[in-house]
């Protein structure tokens, strides 16, 4: 492509830039992986011996296991609620015309623009006024606010690819609104709903500021990492990091794959008569 087009700088310059960016993005992730298997306490270039002792230490640490349990509970509940809310709002915006529609859309996309420290502060103030701060439930409620915009955006973009006539046609042929939704809309939106669940799960699993402010003594995995950042060199962070990277990266890649494949099959269907 663009073979006739000369670029302002030779190709290798642009590709070097591309490589540099990927090194910056992935070197910290790879280094966590490498150092998690190093037997040395202090991470350095000359690793003397490889071992899995830090993994054993992490899985024997009651504090980490408790945090992991909290994290998974919170992320699962968040994914469930945020995906439901996100899909409902996306469907309402797609299907109906109503007063204040643009305002609802703006409201739904607002939370990511609020600095996370400010949001955490507001959440802590709010939950301590109603006596709920320091509970796992309050973290879930707050994480739903942070994660729902992603779910709503993913579902809304997917519904955009569906001709709205399909649903009306089904209803004209005698389907109730519920049947049309279940038989036409849901199958079409299924990949996006799956992707939304994966992304919201990842967002919650990774969120540290709100969990730190609101959670009190209930720690999640990122909060234990945050506490370690303040202290001494601790090789178990590399283990927790590697596991976290493996978990969130596979969630995000799975979500991307779902969306990509559904978009492709949709295009193919349109091309073939």
């Amino acid at each position: 492509m663009n073979r006739h087009l000369k670029h302002a700088l030779p190709a290798w310059v642009w590709f070097t830039g591309l490589m540099l960016v990927f090194v910056i993005l992935y070197a910290p992730i790879l280094s966590a992986l490498v150092f998690s298997f190093s037997a040395d306490r202090f991470p350095s270039l000359d690793i003397t011996r490889f071992s899995t002792k830090w993994y054993a230490q992490v899985f024997a640490d009651a504090r980490v296991l408790e945090a992991l349990k909290n994290s998974l509970t919170i992320a699962l509940s968040t994914a469930l609620v945020a995906t439901t809310l996100g899909f409902a709002a996306a469907y309402a915006d797609f299907r109906f015309r109503f007063f204040g529609q643009r305002m609802v859309l703006a409201l739904a996309l607002l939370p990511p623009t609020v600095p996370i420290v400010v949001l955490s502060l507001a959440m802590l103030a709010f939950f301590s006024r109603i006596g709920l701060s320091g509970t796992v439930g309050s973290i879930i409620v707050a994480h739903v606010v942070v994660a729902t915009p992603f779910a709503m955006a993913i579902c809304r973009l997917r519904l955009e690819q569906m001709p709205p006539e399909y649903e009306t046609a089904a209803q004209n042929l005698g389907a109730t609104p519920g049947q049309a939704l279940r038989l036409i809309v849901l199958p079409h939106a299924a990949p996006a709903i799956g992707a939304a669940a994966l992304i919201t799960f990842a967002v919650s699993l990774d969120e540290y500021a709100i969990a730190w402010f609101v959670g009190g003594l209930e720690q999640t995995v990122p909060v234990t990492v945050l506490n370690t950042l303040q202290g001494q060199v601790d090789p178990t962070i590399h283990v927790i990091g590697t596991l976290a990277f493996a978990a969130t990266l596979s969630l995000v890649f799975a979500a991307q794959l779902l969306l990509l494949r559904s978009t492709k099959s949709h295009k193919n269907k349109e091309v073939s008569p």
Binding site: P28, I29, S31, S44, V225, I237, H238, G241, Q256
Partner: peptide, 27 residues
């Protein structure tokens, strides 16, 4: 996809890795 994925993965651990990279005796 590869460029966007790190946005959703443990930012704190990546900062810790940087600390280790840049700190005294670091890489």
């Amino acid at each position: 996809g590869l460029a966007l994925a790190p946005f959703f993965t443990s930012y704190l651990v990546r900062i810790y890795s940087l600390q280790v990279f840049l700190g005294e005796g670091g890489v």
